[in-house]
């Protein structure tokens, strides 16, 4: 993609992300109302922080652009695992509404266990027993409703 041989390394991408977040913060908080008599209001701090963050982001981009951080290439498969793990947690609230907390937790943890390369039937045992222990700990011992 980059013919010159320069490709955006990791620090450059982080710097870019920080800058974008900084600019976004700045723009959003610029719209906050001020205090009477023209004094700065609730927007003051986010504005300063947004400005600082965009500058830091720029500095990160400039400082590391020429370097090659020579890191190992990550594999697509690794990122897919991360995605699945996050998906399990994103779906969790719905699962809980559908099946109740204990069952939802057991299913989710079994999924996580499989992701961690525990074999299928073992994963289900891990999920169920973990749920049981956690449930007993919180519901019975600490009296927290789940």
């Amino acid at each position: 993609m980059f013919k010159s041989g320069w490709r955006p390394n990791r620090s450059f991408i982080y710097g870019l992300a920080f800058s974008a977040l900084g600019v976004f913060t700045f723009v959003v908080s610029n719209a906050f109302p001020g205090l009477p008599e023209g004094h700065p209001g609730p927007g003051l701090f986010p504005l300063i922080m947004g400005a600082c963050m965009s500058l830091i982001g720029l500095a990160l981009m400039v400082q590391y652009r020429s370097q090659d951080d020579g890191n190992k290439h990550s594999m697509v498969g690794d990122w897919i695992s991360i995605g699945i793990l996050l998906l399990i947690l994103i779906v969790f609230p719905w699962l809980r509404n559908l099946a109740g907390f204990p069952i939802a937790l057991a299913i989710s943890i079994s999924g996580v266990a499989m992701l961690l390369k525990i074999l299928h039937w073992k994963a289900i045992i891990v999920g169920t027993s973990t749920t049981l222990v956690v449930f007993l700990l919180f519901n019975k011992l600490l009296q927290v409703p789940l």
Partner: peptide, 9 residues
């Protein structure tokens, strides 16, 4: 893996 399953829970 076992430990991390418990951590997740």
């Amino acid at each position: 893996p076992l430990l991390l399953s418990v951590v997740t829970a």
